[in-house]
């Protein structure tokens, strides 16, 4: 079966700047994939090229098996919700009605439910909405369209935590009832970790990690405790990161730890914590962020 998105050797060059450098990946059908990475990693550019809004400098992009550029048959099966979407001067209701006409599977019912969830006034002009409300409009369109391929690029700028949770819940519920392929770029990795079935981490125009979320669970472990015991325990394991504070140490080891491996840890009063998706991404993206710098020496 052809994957909904197939990208091979994709490069996008701007004047003096390489936004995408030889990117290759396939999206799986009916899976929610998280597109993670720092600002400027190339996530938005990648999504714009997939939806035919931007053009590739080199390489090949296939959506549903063919080139999406100016291809109505392919484009109409997609919806792309962008953080910086420019909307016409419509009222919210008009905007939703317009969007509904372009999608055969559009659900008015879902759109109305979401309008109520987000407390959005249908009669208000879009340009009078706050940033968070404008994000909510994009989310409603992205979900209610029920497009086979749904792309969200940082869709919740300005949305409060409650509204974000509404988005996650509704996305999961509607996705379960009407399966589709979702590509979601986000900075809020911890929040979305439970949602993502697959992660694609980008850094400086490269894909640096492409894995199923389940496979990443326990792929790296933080071992903390008395430095001597930690050193003894971690000897022979590949180490990602090592920090010391007085007599305490915290070391990240890579590789799954089987039960027998764990036994000495109990004796040495060591704490073993699987690395969270966010920490993994921080490591994969190459530059430790504030989270990784925080030393946790809890006993």
């Amino acid at each position: 079966m052809t994957p909904p998105i197939s990208v091979t050797g994709l490069t996008r060059r701007y004047r003096g700047h390489l936004a995408l450098d030889n990117v290759t990946f396939d999206a799986q059908d009916g899976v929610i994939t998280g597109l993670l990475g720092r600002n400027g990693a190339g996530k938005t550019t990648l999504m714009k090229i997939i939806t035919g809004q931007e053009f590739a400098s080199a390489g090949d992009v296939r959506v549903f098996g063919t080139n999406p550029v100016e291809n109505d048959a392919v484009l109409r099966r997609m919806v792309f919700v962008r953080e910086d979407q420019i909307y016409p001067d419509f009222k919210v209701g008009h905007l939703l009605r317009t969007a509904s006409r372009f999608y055969p599977d559009w659900s008015d019912e879902l759109a109305d439910t979401l309008l109520a969830d987000f407390d959005l006034p249908a009669g208000r002009p879009v340009k009078k909405l706050s940033r968070g409300m404008r994000s909510a409009v994009g989310i409603i369109i992205g979900l209610a369209a029920r497009a086979e391929l749904t792309l969200f690029d940082e869709p919740y700028a300005g949305l409060d935590a409650v509204a974000r949770q509404v988005f996650y819940d509704r996305l999961l519920a509607d996705y379960a009832a009407y399966p589709r392929t979702v590509l979601l770029s986000t900075h809020l990795i911890d929040e979305t970790a439970g949602l993502l079935e697959r992660v694609l981490v980008m850094d400086k125009g490269h894909v640096v990690l492409d894995a199923m979320a389940d496979d990443l669970r326990g792929v790296a472990t933080r071992v903390s405790g008395p430095a001597l015991a930690v050193d003894e325990f971690t000897a022979g394991h590949p180490v990602w990161d090592s920090r010391r504070m007085g007599s305490q140490a915290s070391v990240v080891v890579v590789g799954h730890l089987a039960e027998p491996d764990r036994a000495p840890a109990m004796a040495g009063r060591l704490t073993l914590e699987p690395l969270s998706l966010q920490e993994l991404v921080v490591h994969a993206a190459g530059r430790p962020g504030p989270d990784a710098q925080m030393m946790r020496t809890s006993a």
Binding site: N71, D72, R82, Q85, P88, F102, I141
Partner: peptide, 12 residues
């Protein structure tokens, strides 16, 4: 821009 987000080609 909004039309492009809704999967309309530039040609259409």
């Amino acid at each position: 821009p909004f039309a492009l987000a809704l999967g309309v080609s530039r040609r259409s």
